[in-house]
Design a protein around this nucleic acid. Structure first.
Ligand SMILES: NC(=O)c1ccc[n+]([C@@H]2O[C@H](COP(=O)([O-])OP(=O)(O)OC[C@H]3O[C@@H](n4cnc5c(N)ncnc54)[C@H](O)[C@@H]3O)[C@@H](O)[C@H]2O)c1
Ligand SMILES: NC(=O)c1ccc[n+]([C@@H]2O[C@H](COP(=O)([O-])OP(=O)(O)OC[C@H]3O[C@@H](n4cnc5c(N)ncnc54)[C@H](O)[C@@H]3O)[C@@H](O)[C@H]2O)c1
Lengths: 248, 248
DNA sequence: CAGCGCTCGTTCACATGTTCACAAAGTCGC
DNA sequence: GCGACTTTGTGAACATGTGAACGAGCGCTG
């Protein structure tokens, strides 16, 4: 085999692969067999050159003059993302958010199966959530080993997040998706991705605040000097479509 | 007043402000009155120089030889993020995720209040979720105007997301937090932030896949050439602590 | 089978973000 | 008040990511 062919794929590219994957799935559903970088870019909301560069990293051929084969590209991306096999996940903390995630069906499609949900609250243990029964948090390490869990999802209150992460790590989990607004301190070989809804809202608020400030000063400054206010300000958006931002 | 003093604050900095804010709150709770960039950096899981540069963008003084005044810095950041006033939000789609968000109490602390929740399913309309009653999606535009909603949160199925976004936009909402795995097509002045849990999982999976591949080829290659496998591979993590990644 | 048009893959210049390193500016002890 | 020590604020080097431009390769057509 020729396994280690490409190397050092940029993080930014990796973050876009799932989006391409999703677009390609949609194209497949629409029976399209070929896709040009232009079309993919349009659908994914990015630049066409970026698409080509991203795809070229893992040597996937498109065909010049034609485009990329949808099916072929899907296979490539799926292999690259490791979506060919199943990733057993565990959810720690069966509260509002943990339960919502546990009930959500959309992950299994992509090869992520939630194999266990734990909580520390005895009142919740035994409760059914989706297809699973909530287990006690004491059994977390045990469950990780039993199901060969690879990804841990933390949805505990912030104060309990570090402890949950430690337990997961000690049980061998190297990949953690953390929803708690807590900076986790873990060994360097553990990969943590934080999803913090409050942070997202605050970023939106920042820009709203700026918008308001810009408008206020434009109004206040009225006409002085140049005609900048109206002419220069809408530069906030350069693209034709909305500004977009996803997890890094 | 001296409002428009600093300009062009980098996106990356903005994304870190909420984290600093959280750390400072914690310090305040611990009655610490001063914080050095070093301490803040440690707590926020970033580099100290980055902290200083970030803070310097909006001209906040620390005191050389001493550090930053926790209270003062909190006020500055809060002002910068617009956390001094309330941001009315609306949730579109009262399913698993929408309900979890609506019930969540942690947002109001930061000035984000969910003023309405809508759903298209007649069976759900009228249902109580947290402190609110689910309204019909038809009333969305009306509710936006009535409550002067500034931020829209989309938690509908992917197929309904574009429509929800259009309605929000037409009603004047300029900031959208989108949980649906859909690329929204909106006017350039609308700021969209996507939160896609599936994408996060896929990114984790990618790195797990790479880890596995690296280990496999290290094992396969056994000893040939240099003693690299063990020595070079753990270079995955350069920092002392876990790799971290948040929304861009 | 040669010419033509299309689209990839790559290169290059630029923009954004990170880290280092150090002078300037303050505090604190004496 | 002065000198030693600490920590900020920032300039400059480096790293990463983006977007435009363009040559090279492929399929189609006549
Ligand atoms: N919409 C949301 O729910 C939302 C939004 C943004 C952020 N968050 C964050 O996500 C996390 C969970 O939020 P939530 O609303 O689901 O909270 P929640 O209080 O509803 O649920 C937390 C659950 O974790 C359990 N728990 C506590 N300590 C535990 C431990 N050591 N091990 C296992 N389980 C433990 C609790 O018993 C509880 O059931 C919080 O950190 C919150 O800040 C939630
Ligand atoms: N854990 C999760 O729940 C989770 C995780 C990742 C992604 N997501 C995404 O978040 C979104 C919501 O997920 P969910 O699990 O809450 O789904 P859900 O099916 O439980 O909820 C969706 C709700 O939206 C309502 N709806 C449909 N069309 C609407 C419209 N036009 N206007 C208003 N409401 C409408 C439906 O009636 C339903 O109540 C989905 O796009 C999903 O892919 C959810």
């Amino acid at each position: 085999m020729s396994p280690a062919r490409r190397r050092v794929i940029p993080e930014a590219t990796i973050a876009r692969l799932p989006v391409y994957h999703r677009c390609l799935l949609q194209m497949q559903a629409e029976e399209r067999s070929k896709a040009s970088s232009e079309q993919l870019a349009e659908m994914a909301g990015v630049n066409a050159a970026k698409v080509r560069k991203d795809l070229s990293y893992f040597g996937s051929y498109g065909t010049r003059g034609v485009g990329y084969g949808v099916d072929h590209l899907l296979v490539e991306i799926r292999r690259e993302l490791g979506l060919t096999h199943d990733w057993p996940c565990v959810i720690v903390g069966a509260g509002n958010l943990g339960s919502a995630l546990a009930k959500f069906a959309g992950f299994s499609d992509r090869g992520f199966s939630v194999v266990a949900v734990v909580d520390i609250d005895p009142a919740r243990v035994g409760e059914q959530v989706g297809e699973l029964v909530i287990q006690h948090e004491e059994r977390l390490a045990e469950l990780v080993l039993e199901h060969a869990v690879v990804i841990g999802i933390i949805t505990t209150p912030p104060a309990a997040a570090q402890e949950a992460a430690d337990t997961l790590t000690q049980a061998g989990v190297r990949s953690i998706l953390n929803f708690a607004p807590t900076v986790l301190d873990l060994p360097a070989d553990v990969l943590v991705r934080d999803v913090d809804v409050a942070v997202e809202l605050q970023i939106l608020a920042f820009h709203e605040e700026r918008r308001a400030a810009a408008k206020a000063s434009a109004t206040a400054a009225a006409k002085p000097a140049t005609a900048k206010p109206a002419a220069t300000k809408p530069a906030t958006g350069k693209q034709v479509t909305a500004k977009r931002a996803t997890a890094s």
